[in-house]
Design a binder for these strands. Sequence first.
DNA 1: GTCTATACGCAGATAGAC
DNA 2: GTCTATCTGCGTATAGAC
Lengths: 194, 194
Amino acid sequence: MNTEERLIESTRALLWERGYLGTSPKAIQQRAGAGQGSMYHHFAGKHGLALTAIRRTAEELQAVAEARLSVPGTALERITAYLRRERDVLKGCPVGRLTQDPDVMADPALRAPVEDTLAWLRTRLAQVLDEGRAAGELDRRLDPPATAAAIVAVLQGGYVLARASGTTDPFDQAVSGVLALLAAHAPETARQRA
Amino acid sequence: MNTEERLIESTRALLWERGYLGTSPKAIQQRAGAGQGSMYHHFAGKHGLALTAIRRTAEELQAVAEARLSVPGTALERITAYLRRERDVLKGCPVGRLTQDPDVMADPALRAPVEDTLAWLRTRLAQVLDEGRAAGELDRRLDPPATAAAIVAVLQGGYVLARASGTTDPFDQAVSGVLALLAAHAPETARQRA
DNA sequence: GTCTATACGCAGATAGAC
DNA sequence: GTCTATCTGCGTATAGAC
């Protein structure tokens, strides 16, 4: 990995662990094993580096989610696969955490990837739910956008509860809880097939 | 309000808006209209002030939640009242946001009120759900701790989605979504009564 | 491309006068 | 109780040599 790559990856890791406010140029350089001059040669400064890092993290998250949601299977199976995928639960969501960074939210460029990623996730889940309804796997009365928002919120909130407790337990419980509620919305026939 | 009170309230506001890392002694003093010496006379420093502020915020949040959850009514009504209470949605949860502050999570004293408050909330909601089950208002198959975790997660995650989008919309959708899922777990007889 | 030198202001606190 | 110095180090760069 060249210096530029190492700088980007270090920034991604630090933004995840400490946020934008908590990440200093010096810390980035040390973690990347790069000097001061090196960093300012490749990037305009902390802001430019963070922009590159955040965009990459956002793209990666969408790609990983899409991989689980686009496999064959029922809507419920795909959503379950997405929710139960391996995660670094105690580190939290690398995109969602930026939402708490006032300097990120105040800067339109830094904020855009965060806004876009979470909006995309809700839309994509609503699509999957809608497909499930169309296929008769889910109750027609279920509201896809609202349910999708609830599911994404359970994830983001699950991270918060896990970090507060210091264990992954509340995250797993929240996911199980919402999946159980959702499963009850499969009509009898679909539930028996499952 | 005396100087000490103003310092505490300023700290509470700043912790909410900018987190612990993003809050400097100078900013606290300016907002409180107090001088440097004044702050260090009343408190040992940023840490001590934050400790007082966080404890107060945590207590207040529990009191407000308990007020909604302890009124007469069915479990579903009380949980709905709690979820739909007025909130500063775009500011986020003043307790949950501290979960993203590495310096708070690394300090046992600062962290304890955060951990305790969110743990208490889950337990309290599980109790209410259990009462609902016992009263025949909710499906016996519903798992109170998991469902409670999901509900608290929807709140915490709803804040995240709202902040990302810049509108309260996803928060309201997530709340509606989870309440709709939950309502379907009321047995027919209870649903008809409602 | 990378290094070292230099700069200015803020973070976070201590000391002692009033 | 509050004020004004004073202090050390870090955050965030810029400049220019190699």
